[in-house]
């Protein structure tokens, strides 16, 4: 009996996990005697994960996507805004309560499993911590569910391949039947043939258990394959958000366009010029106005002064938004 099936149907519309205007500022030490500098990892991000849905979060280094993951997991607290579970702020819930609702899957399956513990112990740990269920039976069930042979229960992580380790990590995350899995680049450390197995597994598990997925990735093909919605993050802001098929097929924000053009698919030839110049996003020095303007091929003067808000796309579907002045005024 899966957790999602026990929930009433009405919850499908309301977000189970939501970031509302979330900001996160770190202070970075600049040496012994210098004042610490602020690093704005997230600057007002809204993101809603609905029960049983899959949403992709795409961005490059410095976009703040991993910071957002840590905030949604409750490992770190936002400096502004709020993370809500079923509409209740994260602060009102205990760490353990948060842990039962949302679990992580990390990128590197070699670092995410404790090398000192056996596989059964790793998968069973959440059950022991939360004192739920018949541990031995549930561990066996999870091992079957993620498609591992039963005998791995006695193995140590170092005896497993990368794909097997990632299956163990997924089994551990599912152990206490969370509502949301936050997967941070779950396949980018794996070979392509293994990546396909893990993507299939995530799709199957979603169907079987009704768990919602937040898939953080730099790979638009992976996001397009697994997710209904996608949000594109640039320097701590969502710059484009909407149905994955629409956004990937017809991106509107210049950065989303550049990302889509960067997808090198098999069968394609030649290399388009992205026109991004040599600037790179530095969260320690966020540009004035639109934070993408130094790299934007479609920049106009207004972009250097006005910081665009995330608004509806003229002529686009109602659930699609961009943060671009020129898209908003209809000139792009």
């Amino acid at each position: 009996m899966s957790a999602a099936a026990q929930k009433p149907e009405v919850s499908a519309a309301a977000p189970v996990l939501e970031a509302r205007g979330v900001t996160k500022v770190y202070s970075v030490s600049a040496g012994l005697f210098a004042a610490p500098r602020p690093l704005t990892a997230l600057a007002g991000v809204d993101l809603a994960i609905r029960a049983g849905s899959a949403i992709g979060l795409v961005g490059e280094s410095g976009s703040g996507k991993s910071t957002l993951a840590r905030l949604l997991l409750g490992i770190e607290q936002p400096t502004g805004g709020a993370v809500l579970f079923d509409g209740k702020p994260l602060g009102a819930l205990s760490r353990r309560a948060v842990a039962r609702r949302v679990q992580p899957v990390f990128q590197d399956p070699f670092g995410s499993l404790n090398p000192s513990h056996g596989v059964a112990e790793i998968i069973g740990l959440p059950l022991a911590v939360h004192r739920v269920g018949d541990k031995a039976a549930r561990v066996a069930e999870l091992i079957d569910q993620v498609g591992l042979p039963r005998r791995v229960a006695d193995a140590r992580p170092r005896e497993l391949s990368g794909g097997q380790r990632q299956r163990v990590a997924i089994a551990r995350a599912l152990a206490i039947r969370p509502d949301v899995l936050v997967c941070d680049e779950p396949t980018s450390a794996l070979d392509v043939s293994v990546q396909a197995q893990i993507l299939n597994l995530l799709a199957d598990l979603r169907r079987e258990t009704g768990v919602a997925l937040l898939l953080i990735s730099h790979n638009l093909s992976v996001v397009g394959h697994l997710c209904e919605r996608v949000a594109i993050l640039y320097l701590g802001r969502v710059v484009e958000e909407g149905p994955a098929a629409d956004v990937l097929a017809v991106p509107r924000h210049p950065y989303a366009k550049a990302l889509a053009a960067s997808v090198l698919s098999v069968g394609g030839t030649g290399l388009p010029d992205l026109g991004l110049g040599q600037e790179w996003p530095n969260p320690l020095a966020i540009p004035s106005g639109c934070r993408f303007h130094p790299r934007c091929p479609s920049v106009v003067d207004a972009c250097r002064e006005t910081d665009p808000a995330l608004t509806g796309v003229p002529g686009g579907s109602a659930d699609r938004h961009t943060a671009c002045l020129r898209v908003a005024e209809g000139t792009l």
Binding site: S193, A196, A203, S221, H225, A245, V266
Partner: peptide
Amino acid sequence: VGLLGSLPDPSRTAPGAPLATIPGT
């Protein structure tokens, strides 16, 4: 053939459809 089939590509494979995999190691 297996390697190419295992790539997710929204232009070739339907979203959410199972990707081809290569069994074994």
